[in-house]
């Protein structure tokens, strides 16, 4: 499994709670890797062990932790480039939602070997979206909820997002857009790239 996934969990725990917590998570998980590298591959079984150790050490459910990781990726200054790459998806939050089908493909373009679940987006009723995530890694739907919630904020859109659980083979997310002009858009311009990539 791609090191970026593990590195992200490590960065989230370290940046949000401190490196002591990360050491404790590692000890509790029984994983024999003290620190993960973004550009190496690791045993997929580590993911499950790490997440359950995180849940116990941080005293919250895995679902909540995964959501927090999604939000962390968009809001933390260290990952400004991820926010930018997501904002390439569309000029508005609804456009971004409609571009999510392309997310796994875009991700593969960016980092070959980083495989995300297949994503299907429908808008059966205006402003009411249903997002299906099919395939591993399990729990990705929760990360996506955190990611999209933070991005809705970023676009200045008021939206309600809910992970409604599994249906057939898919993790299902429901999104209801209340107001696309709720707050000021944090903005995005193609030409800011120079600063973002320095991160």
């Amino acid at each position: 499994m791609h090191g970026l996934i593990f590195r992200t969990i490590q960065a989230f725990v370290t940046d949000s709670f401190g490196s002591d917590y990360w050491s404790r998570v590692i000890v509790r998980s029984g994983v024999d890797v003290p620190s993960f590298e973004a550009m190496l591959q690791y045993e997929p079984a580590h993911l499950c062990a790490l997440l359950s150790a995180c849940a116990e050490e941080l005293d919250r459910s895995q679902d909540v932790i995964l959501e927090d990781i999604g939000a962390y990726l968009i809001t933390h200054q260290k990952h400004a480039s991820i926010r930018r790459l997501m904002r390439f998806g569309g000029d508005s939050f609804p456009e971004l939602l409609h571009s999510l089908d392309e997310l796994p493909g875009r991700t593969r373009l960016a980092v070959s070997g980083l495989d995300l679940p297949q994503i299907r987006v429908r808008e059966p009723i205006l402003h009411q979206y249903t997002i299906d995530c099919v395939g591993p890694p399990a729990g990705f739907g929760h990360v996506l909820v955190g990611l999209l919630r933070a991005l809705a904020d970023d676009y200045g859109t008021l939206a309600v997002l809910t992970h409604v659980g599994r249906r057939d083979e898919a993790e299902v997310i429901e999104v209801s857009i209340v107001d696309t002009g709720f707050a000021e858009d944090r903005g995005f311009s193609l030409s800011d790239a120079a600063e973002a990539t320095v991160q």
């Binding site: 550009m39 991820i82 875009r106 960016a110 990539t197």
Partner: peptide
């Protein structure tokens, strides 16, 4: 063009991570 820009930024980000790893 926009896809090209996306790719350029994504590549720079991934290269930075690789470069970091190599240095360490």
């Amino acid at each position: 063009a926009v896809e090209l820009l996306f790719l350029q930024e994504a590549k720079s980000t991934a290269m930075a991570a690789s470069f970091n790893l190599n240095t360490r």
